[in-house]
Amino acid sequence: MGKENNHTGVFVAFVLLSECQWDKAKLINDCKADWGIELADNDSDNAMVCTLGDITVAAALMPGPVPNGEAEHYAAANYMWPEAVDAAKNHKAQIMVSVIGKEAGLIERGKLFTKIVASCLRQDGATAVYTDGAVFHPGFYSDVASLMKKYDDALPILDWVWFGVYRTAEHSGIYTYGMRKFGKEEMEVYADNADLNDMRDFLLNITAYVLDGNVTLNDGETLGFSAEQKLAITISDAIALDGKSIKIEYPR
């Protein structure tokens, strides 16, 4: 828990396009206008790769849709966007965006990554973002990213982490998907007859606490938002995900 794993530092997204075309010069100009990010051009028509300090940024036009119907599959889980599946089904190409750089901090990398993706969404024909097992509405993704223009310390958590819903015969709950790229384990919270919106807000607050403070939650410890509150933390096989997850007791 908290150690490097195969997912740590992997920031990759696919901006879905309605046509197989992009304007690389526009992307470079938009990154500068939107965020003050200076991206260097190169000789390739279909790819842009440049280095910003210790970070390498790459964006490339990929002809054809995301293979194996992956985008459509994950779009079906977006309970906030009923048209997500249609947007995923109809895309004809994608811009693959990646940000790598082991020396730079994970939060710094994550912020830069989200800024580049948001600028890609200003391309003509950009219809969705597929990343970390979720398909996001372009307006939603851009609105969350824009928080970084208003507040220097803002974390675009809703672009980084998907808060999924799961149900079993015994209970329903909310899980995170996207924490592992920050070197953290995914989290799950569940309860009987609890409001899922309240549960999601609860887990969102914990996610912000973990990422903002680089906090590691350990098995057997407790967590609380007051001196009296002591919510149990358990690490065990995940319910809605592969591998282990952190289970956090939901307050009554």
Rank of each mutant, 00 (worst) to 15 (best):
G9H: 03
V10K: 15
F14P: 05
V15L: 03
V15G: 02
Q21C: 04
K24H: 05
K24M: 02
K26C: 04
K26N: 08
A33L: 05
E38W: 07
E38V: 15
A40F: 10
D43I: 06
S44M: 08
S44K: 12
M48W: 05
M48Q: 10
T51P: 03
L52R: 05
G53Q: 13
G53T: 11
V57L: 01
A58Y: 07
A59L: 04
M62F: 07
P63L: 07
P65E: 13
H73D: 00
A75V: 12
A76P: 03
A76K: 13
A77I: 08
M80R: 15
A84R: 13
A88W: 07
N90S: 15
H91V: 02
K92A: 09
I95W: 01
M96N: 05
M96D: 07
S98N: 15
K102Y: 00
L106C: 06
L106E: 05
E108T: 14
E108W: 00
R109P: 02
K111Q: 09
K111G: 10
L112Y: 10
V117L: 08
V117K: 05
A118D: 10
C120P: 04
R122W: 00
A128V: 06
V129R: 02
V129Q: 06
T131S: 15
T131Y: 07
G133T: 12
P138G: 07
G139M: 02
Y141Q: 10
L147W: 05
D153M: 11
W162D: 14
F163A: 11
T168S: 11
T168H: 00
A169S: 12
A169V: 06
E170H: 05
G173C: 06
G173T: 01
Y175S: 09
G178R: 08
R180K: 09
F182N: 07
E185K: 06
E186L: 02
N193W: 13
A194V: 13
L196Y: 01
D198L: 14
M199D: 02
M199N: 03
M199Y: 01
F202E: 04
L204A: 09
N205Q: 14
I206M: 04
T207E: 02
A208D: 15
Y209S: 09
L211C: 04
V215I: 14
D219C: 14
D219M: 01
E228H: 12
E228V: 09
Q229V: 04
K230T: 11
K230V: 11
L231D: 03
L231E: 05
L231P: 02
A232V: 10
A232Y: 05
I233Y: 01
I235N: 03
S236G: 08
A238L: 12
I239C: 10
I239G: 08
A240E: 00
A240F: 03
L241I: 07
L241W: 01
G243L: 03
K247A: 11
Y250R: 07
P251C: 04
R252E: 08
